[in-house]
Amino acid sequence: MELVFNELSLTKPFENLVVARNKMKKFVLLIQELFSHGISKDLRVADDFLHLSLGNEYKIIQWLNDKEVDLELKRFFKARISRKPYIDSHNESHLYNNFISSEFIHNEITCKGLGIAYLLDGIAISILSHEDWDTHLLNLNFIEVNSSGELFEEVIEVRHISNSKHFELHKPYCDDRKKLVIGDLEWRNSLEEIFPSLNFCERAKAQLVDYKKGDPILEQIKNRLIELNNYFIKWEKGGFDSTVVPFKVTPESHRTLEQYREEHTFLCPDGEYRVFSWHLRMTPGAGRIYFIPDEKTRKCIIGHIGNKLKTVSDPT
């Protein structure tokens, strides 16, 4: 899982050198702890990272040359920030294109690191410079203009860490991710074993197999299925609660299901045809997963994994 630095956590310099050194030490020790648990091997930072200010006239590059700072701590940190940029525009062209066509805003400020952490489905990490960063989740406003010129806005959540207690809250999800660090095709051939609370229609299985190995959207699909599976494992009583799912899920409108009922109807594993309304969006892009919460079995039926289906507002 990728670890991405949140540059907004260094918007205001620390009041003195002692505090700056102490905050930086805690930050590097936190990175060491995360790496020891298998959370990434490098820290993604911006090109200007070394010139960000920790204090008045005291930048990160000066901290790396500070004789008062432990030498091994500096060596470790320098090695971890020199391998991966925020985005490699050549080798990660899909990520770069999604980033430049979207905007991510936190508290009315454009944020690069938090946005990239979301696109990578990774974890943002901050220096604990303010109480705003003492949280394991951050809300962002996501804005995208698609190829048709349509404006899409959504409030999204980004996983975030600034101390050890935040990592403990993310650990179950990270453990689930580790189980799927296998060949792309292999996990797609083991759906029932990996996702015991999800029942896949043959259509959805075929759609998964059609994606080429290494296709960027597969990672996002995989992670959305993990989170859906976790929700339905815990669903023991009451109706389906879309507000508890850790990403936005919505039903289609009544008009859409009337006009495009056939396009939303799929054969289910029990031999019955059902209309699929609930869906989630892969962001950015046109990817969708359509599903039905089955209140009898307390499981989820996955009917469609692919581009968005026809709606009244977008019949193409």
Rank of each mutant, 00 (worst) to 15 (best):
N223E: 14
H264S: 02
N98D: 12
W278G: 01
I87M: 00
E103C: 12
V209L: 10
F35D: 00
D184S: 14
V158G: 03
L257I: 12
F167V: 10
V244Q: 09
Y260D: 03
E131P: 07
I105H: 05
R224D: 08
E131A: 10
R159P: 03
S197L: 10
K212R: 15
G115M: 06
S162H: 00
K248F: 10
N65Q: 08
T316H: 06
L17P: 05
H160I: 00
L185Y: 14
E236Q: 09
I292N: 10
F195R: 05
K171Q: 13
G115A: 06
I123P: 03
S162A: 07
Y58N: 04
K25R: 13
H51L: 09
N65R: 12
S242K: 13
G303L: 01
V275A: 08
W133H: 00
L17A: 09
V145T: 13
S147D: 13
V158T: 04
E219N: 15
K212D: 14
F240R: 06
D66I: 03
R274Q: 05
N65H: 08
G239F: 10
Y58I: 07
L71S: 09
S277K: 07
G38E: 01
N230E: 11
Y273D: 09
V158R: 01
E2T: 02
D132Q: 15
V244I: 11
F200E: 03
R274K: 06
F266A: 00
V18R: 11
N141R: 15
N97V: 06
K234L: 10
W133P: 01
D134T: 06
N229D: 15
R203M: 09
G149K: 14
L140F: 08
S190Q: 14
V145W: 02
N223G: 07
E193C: 10
L137R: 14
K12Y: 05
T243M: 10
N91E: 06
R274W: 02
E186H: 11
F27K: 00
R274G: 01
C111K: 08
P85V: 02
I233A: 10
G115I: 04
F77E: 01
N16T: 05
C268H: 01
L309Y: 01
E227M: 14
F195D: 03
V209Y: 07
P284D: 04
C201H: 10
F99A: 04
S89E: 12
I226E: 09
V244C: 08
L198K: 07
P196I: 10
E202P: 08
C111S: 13
K178H: 06
F5V: 01
L120E: 14
V28L: 01
E2M: 05
P196M: 11
E33M: 15
I156L: 02
Y58L: 06
F104A: 04
N107F: 09
E227Y: 06
L140P: 03
R224Y: 11
K179F: 04
I127W: 04
D70S: 12
R188L: 09
E108K: 12
S82G: 08
K26M: 11
K179T: 07
F240G: 10
E57F: 07
F266P: 00
Y260L: 04
T297V: 05
P246C: 05
Y118H: 15
T243L: 11
T135R: 15
T11L: 00
L208G: 10
L128S: 04
A46E: 15
L180V: 11
Q62S: 13
W63Y: 13
G113T: 00
L137A: 07
V45A: 04
L29M: 13
